[in-house]
Design a protein around this nucleic acid. Structure first.
Length: 115
DNA sequence: CTGGTGACCATTA
DNA sequence: TTAATGGCCACCA
């Protein structure tokens, strides 16, 4: 029996979900990094595209995923980007001029990042 | 297959 | 700093 999620049929999207799920609390990652960690460098757009159809059942920390500018991407059609910023602040992340300091909050898949 | 679209990224002005 | 442009490639009609 297949999953009841017709949106999840490609391994590439699941690879992105897995990468996002690995982001620890208090850290953020960019779309380009997620794509690279998932094994698809250069597919940053597909990361955002995959997150757009992300099933909530996965309970992924999608709010920890931001663009290369360290800012939240203004999604088309809804105002969830404001909620995203609020969630990040709730996890202890500080916004600097409406942007996040990736050099301090940027997470590495190696787990060596820090701290 | 063709065309349009997009939670992106880098460069240029 | 913002705005515009080109490139990237999967998804959808």
């Amino acid at each position: 029996m297949r999953a009841a999620l017709p949106t999840v049929k490609n391994s590439m999207r699941q690879a992105f979900y897995a990468a996002v799920a690995q982001i620890p609390r208090g850290r953020v990652a960019t779309y380009g990094q997620i794509a690279q960690w998932a094994g698809y460098p250069g597919r940053a757009r597909q990361v955002g595209y995959a997150l757009a159809g992300m099933p909530e059942e996965l309970d992924l920390p999608w709010h920890r995923v931001i663009n290369a500018r360290g800012r939240v991407s203004p999604r088309t059609g809804s105002g969830f980007h404001m909620l995203q910023r609020d969630l990040l602040v709730s996890e202890g992340i500080v916004f600097r001029a409406d942007a996040i300091d990736l050099e301090h909050y940027g997470w590495s898949p190696e787990g060596t990042a820090g701290e």
